[in-house]
Every structure is written in structure tokens, then in C-alpha cells.
């Protein structure tokens, strides 16, 4: 069953169109991911769906309710974790959670019980008595997520939940997301980490410049790369200068040099090793490892969007505040 359906959604900031008429739908109980670089329009889209921003055009239906007309009704059943932590810096963790619960009309006993449970689940019981501003980045993020699910929402929106935090907290958050999915929640998540999307999303939409350029399950997206073969060669010597010569000699191959001591050969055909090795050998480069590389979602992303995966990764540090 479709629980979210978005049609022709547009967002303009003045003349600039950040979201260019996108269409997608999310099934009940699935984890749906928006994957795209910074500035692609992910946050703009989420904000329109949750009522923090007004669409310039289009339609959003959430659980049968028109989210543009009746956002307050929608807000009762959704939880939102925005890209920036939005808790009160002076208040302690427990107080923050209880306050958030009260906004949904939960009674005192109920909200204190739930806040205690969530703190425990996130390993924050001890920190619950400390003010939010004294938390580490990962703890802040976890508490913000706890605040987003305090009222037990049916649908959860997560805007870059793991950006800029430590590996261990990120891992816990991903586990939690899968936990929530197992409880039957529907989850809409944005990320610019390809592996994250691949690991937790049932379906992924690639979003670039306010447009969805491709959408599907991980398997469906991978089909795009069928027929592409990749071989990685490793050597003790530098292969940096070989790119031109290899491409000239094997015209149906594309050559990438990921690092000094390795070389990636990509081709539509199966790649025969011996001519390659002979050429390299004749240049004094002895290859000691040749490995077939299975295509990854990263390759699909690069191929479809034309954006280098390294560009996405470079933003990791930048986006972490």
C-alpha cells in the first residue's frame, strides 16, 4: 500500500528552482532513500513533506491526507529528524525528550516512561541528566532521533541522520533504522553516503539538481550495469603513467588509476588478461594481483548521474556540523 505519494512537487526560492517537479511514492513499511550530493534538493523535499516549507507546486498525500492543506493532521503521525539537531541546548537530555513528547499531548507519566526507555535504548541514560550542549556530535544526533520517535510515529523522516558523526554512533543509528523497519514503520531517509543507502534502503531515488534521475530497488538499479566488466590490477610499481598507453592499446577499455599501485580496467566485453599483463610486463611493471571487481551501487550512481563518487564522499566532513 502506498503511504506517501508525491506528484509534480516543485520548490522555488525566488527565481531558483531547487526541486523540479519530482514524482515518487513510498510503500507502507519500506525504507525509501533519497541519495544525492549536497544541494540536490533533498532537504527542500523533506521540509515540504513535513510542513516546514510550502511547496511552490504539486501535491503531497500522506496516509490519505493532503499534506499541503492538512499538515497538522499529518504531523500527528510523522516523526521528523531534521538535518540539523533541533533540541534545546540548555535543557538536559531527559527534559528535552519529555518536552518533545508533551508537544504531542502525551501525559506526564507516559512521556517520562517513554523518555527513560529511549535513553536506555540509545545508551544515553547517564547522559540524560546532562545538558544537550555538553553532548558529543554522535550523542546529539542520537538524542535528536530519539526525540523524533518519542511519540511512536507511523512514518519517520530522517534527513542525513549519520552525517558528520562518529562511526560507532552511525552504526547504532543504522541498526535502529532497521529495527524500526522491522516494527513496521515507514522510513524516508536522505543521505549522501552510497553504502548507507545500499545497506538500509529497500528502494532508492538518485536525486541531482532537483530531479530524480533514477529510482528503484538496489537490485533493479544494479541491472543498469549489467554487461560491464571490471578488473583491478595491483603491482609494486607505479602504474600512474600507464593510463594513456593502456587506453591506446585496448581501445574498448576505460582505464582508471584509483591509487599509485593499482589500475582499474573497465570494458563492455570480458577482459582477456594476458595481453594486458604482457604490455605491463614489457614496461617493467609486474602485476602480482588481478581481481574481478563486482559492480557496486557506487558505479551505478556514477554512471547515471555523471557525478564522481569521490565528490559525494568529500562532502562528508563539510556537512558535519
Amino acid at each position: 500500500m502506498e503511504i506517501i505519494s508525491v506528484t509534480n512537487l516543485i520548490k522555488k526560492y525566488g527565481e531558483f528552482q531547487a526541486v523540479n517537479g519530482i514524482n515518487f511514492s513510498v510503500e507502507q513499511g519500506e525504507v525509501f532513500g533519497f541519495l544525492g550530493p549536497n544541494g540536490a534538493g533533498k532537504t527542500s523535499t523533506i521540509n515540504m513533506m513535513v510542513g516546514l516549507s510550502r511547496p511552490s507546486g504539486g501535491r503531497i498525500m500522506i496516509d490519505g491526507i493532503d499534506a499541503i492543506k492538512d499538515i497538522k493532521k499529518v504531523q500527528r503521525m510523522i516523526g521528523v529528524v531534521p538535518d540539523e539537531n533541533n533540541l534545546y541546548y540548555e535543557m538536559d537530555g531527559f527534559g528535552n525528550l519529555c518536552f518533545c513528547a508533551s508537544l504531542y499531548g502525551m501525559h506526564k507519566a507516559e512521556r517520562e516512561k517513554r523518555a527513560g526507555e529511549l535513553l536506555e535504548q540509545f545508551n544515553l541514560t547517564e547522559a540524560g541528566k546532562r545538558p544537550f550542549k555538553a553532548y558529543s556530535k554522535g550523542m546529539k544526533r542520537k538524542l535528536t532521533i530519539a526525540a523524533g520517535i518519542i511519540h511512536n510515529p507511523k512514518i519517520l523522516f530522517l534527513d542525513e541522520p549519520t552525517t558528520g558523526i562518529d562511526v560507532e554512533s552511525a552504526r547504532q543509528i543504522r541498526e535502529l533504522i532497521l529495527d524500526l523497519k522491522n516494527q513496521g514503520k515507514t522510513i524516508f531517509i536522505t543521505t549522501h553516503y552510497i553504502e548507507e543507502a545500499e545497506r538500509i534502503c529497500d528502494r532508492i531515488a538518485f536525486i541531482v539538481n532537483g530531479r530524480i534521475v533514477k529510482m528503484g530497488t538496489v537490485t533493479e538499479l544494479m541491472e543498469n550495469l549489467e554487461g560491464e566488466h571490471k578488473i583491478k590490477l595491483r603491482s609494486d610499481c607505479s602504474m600512474k603513467d600507464m593510463k594513456g598507453e593502456l587506453e591506446n592499446s585496448f581501445t574498448d577499455c576505460r582505464v582508471e588509476i584509483p591509487d599509485d599501485n593499482s589500475c582499474l580496467i573497465v570494458s563492455k566485453e570480458r577482459i582477456a588478461l594476458s595481453p594486458l599483463l604482457q604490455l605491463l610486463d614489457s614496461r617493467g611493471i609486474s602485476v602480482y594481483e588481478a581481481k574481478e571487481v563486482k559492480p557496486s551501487l557506487e558505479d551505478v550512481f556514477v554512471k547515471i548521474t555523471g557525478i564522481e563518487a569521490s565528490k559525494l564522499k568529500n562532502e562528508k566532513g563539510k556537512a558535519g556540523k
Binding site: V50, G51, L52, K72, K73, Q75, R76, V80, P82, E84, N85, N86, L87, Y88, Y89, C100, L103, Y104, G105, A147
Partner: peptide, 14 residues
Amino acid sequence: KGRSFDRLLLAPIS
């Protein structure tokens, strides 16, 4: 500025 106001705007209250 600290974004905590968003939390209030996200709440199901008018």
C-alpha cells in the same frame, strides 16, 4: 536560529 523552533512548527498544534 538554533532550529529548536522547528520542533514547535513540526508539532501537531496550530
